[in-house]
Design a protein around this nucleic acid. Structure first.
Lengths: 334, 334
DNA sequence: CTGAAAGCGCTAACAT
DNA sequence: ATGTTAGCGCTTTCAG
């Protein structure tokens, strides 16, 4: 006893016009006599007609949908980027499919394939380096892609981001002022370009500028989780490390709490600078000094760039680099 | 110079079989001779054929997609629910469209309409009370809906959740042990059923059991944000309030920080119990004692329930209530 | 300004 | 086990 769905054909019949005319009014095509338009609109309202987006997608070959891949929805860094993406997408009348990738290459590939099978008009990729298979997938799909909030190994993809190298360099330089030679880089996986090709380089440059010798004992590679650094915080302090620039905020809070829970005072005995200025930096005590990024804007600009690519198919676009800054809170001295 | 897409028809021609046969192998229909299947598979691989989900959706009237509406992607409570939803969805081969609603009735309606236009097979609704229009929308769409992690005004919708009334009652009872009569309820908007019909009731029950008189000065209604309570924390303490049960974790951390930043010691001068046991309760110092909820499971069970509804169309299902508990950390005494 | 008709790429009877 | 044939609900030429 399924109630028969009302389709464009039902509306056409009731309004005594053709499907084409109904289609025109639904799509705002101006070539319809006002009286006709009104007649159709009335029927649409009366029947509560809702266009079927699937049929529309099939016929028009445009879904007005973009896929957004996010490594972890519980990560505030990516979540804040997603806000900007979402707002601009609405503004341009695009819908969004947010797909969780769990930082896992297998799953990333799976969700991207799903997105492409669903015929999204474009994708915003949040995450780190792309597997060869994924690069291949994007390439052969001919679907525009923009990377938001990171740099990746595939330099062909446009990315919207800050200058991670420079940001790291500035933060480390700042730390070096009070802590000659005892400044660590606490990093997520170095296999990722963003850490090894950008932040680590910036770290080394800051050392060089300050005339301090690079010591690889001072780069602490972790898996990027809170716990990974919390558990070794005391150990780091015991080794004589006096400060750290930390590549993500989970890690920064983990370090902070690991230190203070062991009676090591931040910033008196240990200074910390975080990288992403997410909420986390303001929830903890002491609050974390941090590199600041225009997170919302990075998302917004990514989406705007993507709309360009989807409409013009102008593959001319390059990386866009937004400004970053620094905010001094309670985890640094002076 | 668009490269012609490879369709099921291309594959059929190359493999010298009919479209139907290709469709069968793609869909794992056993009625295909192994040799034929292999032949088709080879062509699929060679041509890198990818079924078009849009066409499939139109033809089959199933999209194997569920819509998930989330009030705020940056809220860890809902984000953790989403994890469970996502995992179970993958397990059942459903894709998921995550749509941000911003807690805003207009936007909720908009995203839900989009979801339905896209012909999702079901929706998981995270959020609070439904507007009349939204209820109407769901009703007339005939699409199964389950509410995850809340209770809403529409009692027809199945919901997966804990017993919020009981949880509140237990927390408040605990607080009442050391703080006779000085225990507040710090709540998000009371217009939401979950706060007024469940938690506030639980609060009153605990008072009654302890023989203390209800004082509406002690129920602090806020908009649910960190800042809303941070700014009045000192004031509350000055009024003589000695403890609070707080309905969400943003609020709980806001209260905590507002207190400690004003030199009021938690838990010595003020005890706090949070409601959702998200990461936030463990990042702050002192760490927050909290009602614990199986967040991941709530999401997972919601999704499992939804799959049932989508497959059987058995509308027999009712609310499912999972167990909650309590964890004592550093914001309560003894 | 409006209508007729041909698909979009696929599934699902129905035959064989 | 495989092929034929209608559609699914809509957009989009092309005519008029």
């Amino acid at each position: 006893m399924e109630k028969q769905a009302v389709t464009i054909y039902t509306v056409a019949r009731e309004a005594r016009v053709s499907m084409a005319t109904v289609s025109r009014v639904v799509n705002g095509n101006p070539n319809v006599k006002p009286a006709t338009r009104q007649k159709v609109l009335d029927v649409i309202k009366r029947l509560n007609y809702r266009p079927n987006a699937v049929a529309r997608g099939l016929a028009s070959k445009r879904t007005t949908t973009v896929g957004v891949v996010i490594p972890s929805i519980t990560n505030p860094y990516f979540a804040e980027l997603a806000l900007g993406i979402d707002d601009i997408a609405s503004m341009y009348k695009y819908n969004i499919i947010l797909a969780n990738s769990d930082y896992d290459d297998e799953k990333i590939l799976k969700v991207v394939r799903n997105l492409l099978a669903k015929q999204v008009d474009g994708v915003i990729f949040m995450g780190y380096d792309l597997s060869d298979e994924l690069q291949e997938e994007f390439k052969s799909s001919n679907t525009p892609v923009v990377v938001a909030g990171s740099i990746v190994n595939d330099k062909e993809l446009p990315a919207v981001r800050i200058d991670y190298r420079k940001a790291a360099k500035e933060a480390v330089a700042r730390l070096l002022e009070h802590n000659q030679g005892q400044v660590a880089l606490v990093s997520g996986p170095l296999k990722y370009s963003i850490n090894s090709d950008a932040r680590l380089i910036g770290y080394k440059e800051a050392l060089a500028d300050a005339g301090v010798k690079y010591d690889d004992q001072l780069v602490i590679e972790t898996d990027g989780t809170y716990k990974s650094i919390y558990d070794q915080a005391k150990e780091l302090a015991d080794k004589g490390i006096k400060a750290a620039y930390v590549t993500n905020d989970h890690l920064a809070v983990g370090l902070l709490n690991g230190l203070t829970d062991n009676g090591i005072s931040v910033p008196d005995d240990f200074e910390i600078i975080a990288s992403n200025d997410t909420k986390y930096t303001r929830l903890c005590r002491p609050m974390l000094s941090s590199i600041t990024q225009p997170l919302y804007d990075i998302g917004a600009v990514s989406m705007r760039l993507l709309t360009k690519l989807m409409e013009d198919n102008s593959s001319e676009e390059n990386d866009v680099i937004l400004d970053h800054s620094f905010v001094s809170r309670q985890s640094t001295r002076g």
